[in-house]
Simulated scan of single mutants.
Amino acid sequence: MKTYVFLLIAVLFETFGTSCLQASQQLTRFWPSVGIVVGFGGAFWFFMQVLKVIPLGVTYALWSGIGIVLISISGYFVFGQKLDLWAVVGIALIISGIVVINLLSQTSVH
């Protein structure tokens, strides 16, 4: 369970760092630029902790899938970026993949 908490923390740091990429306006704003370093630094540290328990492929699939969902939500609420129907369908498919990995895969740690 602790491993999945670390994975979620890693994804939250990554989502923060990615949002700061947008907010930094190509590294021209100081605090969002600092947020990039903090966000990705924290994300990679927690990601490394997860890799001690869960195989790389599964970890990266979960990391990227959850990250896509969270950054899409962030883009919508923070930056006013809209998603069309097909983007929502694609994100739903990604969520479905995450569910399949967690419920059915013997590779993932439960």
Rank of each mutant, 00 (worst) to 15 (best):
Gly41Gln: 06
Val37Tyr: 08
Val58Ala: 15
Gly90Thr: 02
Thr18Ile: 01
Ala87Leu: 09
Gly39Val: 04
Thr28Gln: 08
Gln49Lys: 09
Trp86Met: 12
Ile98Trp: 03
Ala23Gly: 10
Met1Ile: 01
Gly57Lys: 11
Val34Ser: 01
Leu103Tyr: 14
Gly67Ile: 02
Ser19Glu: 01
Thr3Gln: 11
Ala61Ser: 15
Val38Phe: 04
Ile94Lys: 00
His110Ser: 07
Thr59Leu: 15
Tyr60Gly: 10
Gln25Asn: 14
Pro55Thr: 14
Thr28Met: 07
Gly17Trp: 01
Gln22Val: 14
Tyr76Asn: 03
Leu12Glu: 06
Phe79Met: 03
Ser74Trp: 06
Ser19Ala: 12
Leu104Phe: 15
Ser33Tyr: 06
Val89Leu: 14
Val100Leu: 15
Thr107Asp: 15
Ile36Arg: 03
Val50Lys: 04
Phe13Ile: 05
Thr15His: 09
Val88His: 03
Ala92Pro: 02
Ile66Cys: 04
Ser105Pro: 09
Ser64Ala: 09
Val78Pro: 00
Cys20Pro: 07
Gly39Pro: 03
Phe46Tyr: 09
Leu7Tyr: 11
His110Met: 05
Thr59Trp: 12
Leu62Phe: 07
Phe6Val: 06
Val5Ile: 13
Ile94Cys: 01
Phe40Gly: 06
Ile73Glu: 05
Val100Gln: 08
Met48Pro: 02
Tyr76His: 08
Leu103Gln: 13
Phe30Lys: 00
Phe77Tyr: 11
Ser72Arg: 00
Arg29Asp: 06
Met1Pro: 01
Gln81Ser: 08
Ala61Leu: 15
Ser105Trp: 13
Leu7Phe: 13
Leu70Asn: 03
Thr3His: 11
Trp31Pro: 00
Leu51Tyr: 13
Leu27His: 06
Phe77Ile: 05
Asp84Leu: 05
Ile91Glu: 01
Gly35Leu: 04
Val37Ile: 15
Ala10Gly: 04
Leu27Gly: 05
Ser72His: 00
Gly57Val: 15
Ile101Cys: 12
Val53Cys: 11
Pro55Gln: 14
Gly65His: 08
Val34Pro: 01
Phe79Glu: 02
Phe16Ala: 12
Phe30Tyr: 10
Thr107Ile: 13
Thr107Trp: 12
Tyr60Phe: 15
Phe13Met: 08
Leu83Ala: 12
Lys52Gln: 12
Trp45Gly: 08
Leu70Phe: 09
Lys52Arg: 11
Val53Asp: 13
Val88Ile: 14
Trp63Asn: 11
Ile71Phe: 05
Thr28Ser: 11
Ser24Met: 10
Thr3Trp: 11
Glu14Val: 04
Phe77Met: 04
Ser64Phe: 03
Trp86Cys: 08
Leu27Asn: 06
Ser108Ala: 15
Leu56Asp: 13
Leu83Trp: 06
Gly97Asn: 07
Gly57Leu: 15
Met48Trp: 13
Leu62Ala: 07
Met1Ala: 02
